[in-house]
């Protein structure tokens, strides 16, 4: 026997299931559409010349041609591109975290006349678009003899208003007792920064470092301007230039090369996606 209460309960459950199904279908559709370019890139990168030229397209290549990757790797000094990208990304990341953390610590923990005004000077730099510094910075580097060098790619971009702001907030939230205790033990500011402030705020520092990794790996305009030989190009620049220089590369090779460039950021993103997305959601990153 089904009572009236039970039917209305059933109706509610049915409605809930329908709404769930609806939500999932919308989200699955969106995920597929957004994920498709990645799939298409990977699928193309393994295709033969013939399969690349087919329409409607072949979704999964009949044979996985790994030699497309070998072909790209030898078409240009990709090993040098990788090396340059790794060196400039990591050096830039470490330096920017350090530079940002040092100034953030000073602003959070050391008293100084007009400290707040100085901090505003730091914040004001966020309003100056980096693009307007292209010519002057190029000239500065030319005078320093840093054109076409790793330091030329790295150094103009390691000052950090955002890092200073973010880490200052984090350092301000550390209980004063910890610093007082360390001071009793005779610790100086540098040691307190390295052994208290940075370790305690590790999640914030790590999120900041992740953003820096991605931003520096993806950098295009500045490395394009300051480098001028094959052996100094970073991956994004080298990728585009290989395609322009090598008339014989097919789309399967271009896609293989693109994947080689994208892979590190995609891996980092999916390993740390929760941290990155929540960092964004908390307003940790300016758009």
């Amino acid at each position: 026997m089904i009572t009236a209460v039970q039917t209305s309960h059933l109706r509610v459950v049915a409605q809930r299931i329908a709404s769930r199904l609806m939500s999932h279908s919308v989200l699955i559709f969106a995920s597929v559409v957004i994920g498709l370019p990645f799939f298409w890139m990977i699928s193309t990168s393994f295709k033969s010349d013939v399969e690349v030229g087919l329409f409607p397209p072949v979704w999964i290549p009949s044979e996985l041609l790994w030699e497309n990757y070998a072909r790209v790797w030898t078409a240009a000094p990709f090993d040098m591109f990788y090396l340059n990208s790794i060196i400039t990304t990591l050096a830039g990341l470490v330096l920017e975290v350090l530079v940002g953390a040092m100034s953030a610590y000073a602003f959070a923990r050391i008293e100084f006349p007009h400290r707040d005004a100085l901090f505003l000077v730091v914040l004001a730099t966020m309003m100056i678009p980096g693009e307007m510094a292209l010519v002057p910075n190029y000239l500065t580097l030319r005078n320093l003899g840093w054109i076409n060098t790793h330091q030329g790619i790295v150094i103009p971009y390691v000052s950090s208003a955002f890092g200073c702001f973010l880490l200052r907030q984090a350092f301000l939230s550390i209980p004063q007792d910890l610093f007082d205790a360390a001071r009793m033990d005779g610790a100086g500011h540098l040691r307190m920064l390295l052994s208290i402030a940075l370790p305690i705020t590790r999640p914030v520092v790590a999120t900041f470092a992740l953003f820096l990794f991605i931003a520096k790996w993806n950098a295009y305009l500045w490395p394009l301007i300051v480098t001028n030989t094959w052996n100094m190009r970073t991956l994004p620049i080298g990728l585009v230039m290989v395609r322009e220089a090598e008339g014989t590369l097919g789309w399967q090779h271009v896609m293989a090369a693109s994947l080689l460039v994208l892979l590190p950021v995609l891996v980092v993103f999916f390993l740390a996606q929760r941290q990155i997305i929540e960092g964004i959601a908390r307003g940790a990153v300016k758009g």
Partner: peptide, 15 residues
């Protein structure tokens, strides 16, 4: 859905 946000512009442009 978020994943394209931080992808390398040059590579994505080619794709």
């Amino acid at each position: 859905i978020f994943s394209p946000t931080f992808t390398t512009g040059a590579a994505v442009a080619l794709v």
